[in-house]
Design a protein around this nucleic acid. Sequence first.
DNA 1: ATATTATTGAGAATGATACTCAATTACATC
DNA 2: GATGTAATTGAGTATCATTCTCAATAATAT
Lengths: 156, 156
Amino acid sequence: MLSYKERFKYFLKERDLKYTPEREEIIEAIVKLQKHFDAEDIYQQLRKQKSDVSLATVYRTIPLLVDSGLIMETLHCREKVLYEKIYNKRRHDHMVCINCGKIIEFYNEDVEKLQDEICHKYQFVATEHRLGIKGYCKECQDKLNIKVTHSKKEKN
Amino acid sequence: MLSYKERFKYFLKERDLKYTPEREEIIEAIVKLQKHFDAEDIYQQLRKQKSDVSLATVYRTIPLLVDSGLIMETLHCREKVLYEKIYNKRRHDHMVCINCGKIIEFYNEDVEKLQDEICHKYQFVATEHRLGIKGYCKECQDKLNIKVTHSKKEKN
DNA sequence: ATATTATTGAGAATGATACTCAATTACATC
DNA sequence: GATGTAATTGAGTATCATTCTCAATAATAT
């Protein structure tokens, strides 16, 4: 398994694109970022590294990072696109607490099986899926005094 | 089951908000809209109805429509939020063709079961979920000569 | 070393959505 | 039906993330 830098360099070469210092610094930045991040987070991390790659270049580089399989768009939150590193990580889905904003990652084998089943039925070839569950995390349930009533909708 | 208008009127009254002609015209517009739509689509439908509700009012009304359970945010496409009517409809998920953009709706009971299971494990209380599958629809598979290899990732 | 072509930064442009504010209106109460 | 009050409206402006433009620079192949 190649390192992030090597993988990116290889990807660029494949497409006759150039491996510039700016692109290297961006790779260094995303490697350091944890969890979910947006373009601005990458830009701030670059500042921390004393790099002065422009925000425009960050935006220009994101599609390359996505195409090279290093990161992927995962969540839309408050009109922002969030990314996360996916190279060398197993895929997972998300639960988002609508009270505190906490993001919980989970992996479930059955989701993949279900996807296969559904795609087969509709003659669809999937390249990816995203399952997002919104609701309340344990802490917020306690805080807000929400009672657990599994998936039963309250009548109104 | 109340009509869209009655449901909205009731919702507004509950909150001491006013049922204005503009809001009524917006309701009439969304009732006529099919499938997935955005704020601009509502605005255009209003124009067709010879209503001159402003776009600002459309944006202001959308959260009310969401809170009243008449529509819901369903997909993010090209940085736009898409909505769809959900009142009196059973919930479903989506497959989106990344070639032609076609949206296929599907309902699968097991998705709900899976959600319960996952939420139970993580002590999470779900209010909603969204499963989106991206890939290629039948027509585009044929057009692009894509072979079906269910969910096996090609090695690279 | 040179030529070619991609890349960069800066700033302007875009486009969806939100805000501001004065004028208007819905509705509860009289 | 008239009145008061708070909600609502349209128009225009503001915001904010993202994309584009363009001239200057730099990475690679030869």
